[in-house]
């Protein structure tokens, strides 16, 4: 056993896993790709638990493929992960029961990535930042992110163009990130 003392490329990891039993490399793939898959899942499924499930299912499929050397181009790991994520979401939407079978075989603990999920924000500070926006900026972000209105709906409501809504939303996002002390 050895520690990962450097930042191996995706291709390095793929090759190592294909060469034989390498739990460290597999763990690194999970640590690296897990959060990305989970965000992809949350974006498309809009549900934290479903995103978590997606991450586990995709990591199972990816690790299986890597162990058997099925990924012919080692530098295409990200594309393979994305393609597998897309296929898995289609399966989830078809109501596939595959997850249960796979989890029975692999166990959920083996597939948990070690890195963080969505960072926590200082709620009071964010409240102050949102309150500090101009009224139209506040309307756009509240209507877009809370009320889940499309840009077209927001544009009609504010009597501006859709492009203008996008500009206002972008400005508001940048202002909020700056106010929260996040880098651009």
């Amino acid at each position: 056993m050895y520690e990962m003392s450097f930042d191996p490329s995706d291709a390095d990891l793929v090759l190592r896993i294909a060469q034989g039993h390498d739990p460290e490399a597999e763990s690194e793939v999970c640590r690296r790709m897990g959060p990305r898959i989970r965000l992809y899942g949350l974006r498309h499924l809009r549900d934290h638990a479903a995103a978590e499930d997606l991450m586990q299912q995709v990591l199972i499929v990816v690790l299986q493929a890597l162990r058997t050397g099925s990924l012919r181009e080692p530098d295409k790991l990200a594309s393979f992960v994305l393609g597998t994520s897309r296929m898995t979401i289609l399966e989830i939407r078809r109501g596939s029961q595959r997850r249960e079978k796979l989890l029975e075989q692999w166990g959920p603990e083996a597939l948990a990535p070690s890195s963080t999920w969505v960072p926590r924000l200082d709620h009071d500070r964010l409240h102050g930042c949102v309150q500090g926006l101009k009224e139209r900026e506040r309307w756009v972000i509240v209507m877009s992110f809370y009320d889940e209105k499309t840009s077209i709906d927001v544009a009609q409501f504010l009597g501006v163009s859709e492009a203008n809504v996008r500009v206002i939303r972008h400005r508001a996002i940048h202002l909020l990130r700056r106010c929260m002390g996040e880098s651009e």
């Binding site: 960072p119 924000l121 909020l176």
Partner: peptide, 8 residues
Amino acid sequence: VALVEGIR
């Protein structure tokens, strides 16, 4: 995503 959830 954290910002969006915070806004909500």
